[in-house]
Amino acid sequence: MKIIFAGTPDFAAAALKAIADAGFDIPLVLTQPDRPKGRGMQLQASPVKQAALELGLRVEQPEKLRGNADALALLQSVGADVMVVAAYGLILPQEVLDAPRHGCLNIHASLLPRWRGAAPIQRAIEAGDAETGVCIMQMDAGLDTGAVVSEHRYAIRDTDTANEVHDALMAIGAAAVVADLQQLEREGRLNAAAQPENGVTYAQKLSKEEARINWHEPAAVIERKIRAFNPVPAAWTQYQGKPLKIWRVETVNQQGRAGEVLSCTSDGLVIACGEGALSIKELQPAGSKRMDIAAFVAGRSIEAGTVLE
């Protein structure tokens, strides 16, 4: 069975490696063009491109697929049985979806139809969902609207950050898509069920501005946001006119004026919220590295009564 793979970040690279390890024929890998990254803004290959080259696979990096006759001709020339898509980052027009014999399978990091869209992991944590997971989905022209081939659940722990859930779902998704491909190879078909019409939610893209902490919100709401936006875009507040990133907190049963510093010790920087308070355990002042609260207070302090914005 010939498989085209399309993806870009680490989440997708894990699936590509698993598919290759399972012995499938991968004649073509698609990924985003190299992008400038880091302080030097040097062009850097995506994790999927790096994995594909290590595996000795052919890689192509079209800027777009819609209206791209050359890319479509390439896809059709492969004669693929199926295309696996994971966090690719490009819209797939209908002619691309139709190119492989069995269409395109997407690895989506939510329990569809909940959290269709760009940031399903972060939105699930932010909303306080008890669980999330991975769906292998038969792609159609809609936004994550296709029939679900298989569903795999993950219980979100109270301490989970987006990074930790991402890594768990990355492993789950890689194993899941291999199992479904093996079934497709064995039986020549997959059992796909249409998504229910009820329970649809959309996971909008994240922005730096929405990651700014509103201390008037309840402590529990802010705590979830901090975990959801760790590591990107990182929750932050303003102190002395500069951003102060907040990486890890615990809720505490104290009260005060929203944004007010209640205490600052090596045990925690306690900030009052609209309801309850948060004890900051790990933070990052502007121009510094991430540090635990003990390291922070060793070199500076924030006086009780100071109000963060």
Score class of each variant (00 low, 15 high):
A71M: 03
M137D: 11
V178L: 04
T161M: 05
C135A: 06
D140M: 02
A130G: 14
D160N: 02
A124G: 01
I172F: 07
A73G: 15
A168P: 03
E164F: 05
L97K: 09
G133K: 03
C135L: 01
A119K: 05
A86M: 11
Y88E: 10
I121H: 08
S110N: 05
A168Y: 04
H102Q: 09
I107N: 02
T161G: 06
E131R: 09
D180K: 15
T161V: 03
A109P: 15
I172L: 14
A175P: 04
P120Y: 03
Q61E: 11
L111E: 09
V78I: 12
R58G: 01
S110Q: 08
L75R: 05
A174I: 13
Q122I: 08
H108W: 09
L112Y: 03
D129A: 06
Q183M: 08
L72F: 04
A147D: 15
L97A: 08
I172E: 08
I107Q: 02
P62Y: 00
H152N: 13
V78F: 02
G103R: 04
V82K: 10
L169H: 04
A86E: 09
Q94N: 09
L97P: 00
A176M: 11
T145W: 13
D160G: 04
G117I: 02
S77K: 13
L75A: 08
L75M: 15
V82R: 07
V177S: 02
A80Y: 06
E164M: 07
V165L: 00
R66Q: 14
G133A: 05
A86S: 15
H108P: 00
V149E: 15
L65K: 13
R157I: 01
I125M: 03
M137F: 08
E54S: 11
A109M: 10
L112C: 06
N106G: 08
L143Q: 12
V85M: 04
L90N: 12
N68Q: 08
Y154T: 10
P120I: 07
V177K: 03
I125R: 01
I121Y: 08
P113A: 00
R58A: 12
D158L: 13
P113D: 00
Y88P: 12
R157H: 12
P113K: 05
A80I: 11
A130Y: 05
L143S: 08
R157P: 07
G128K: 01
V177F: 10
P100K: 01
P120E: 08
N163E: 14
D158A: 13
H102E: 09
E126T: 06
I156W: 01
L72E: 01
Q138F: 10
A119G: 08
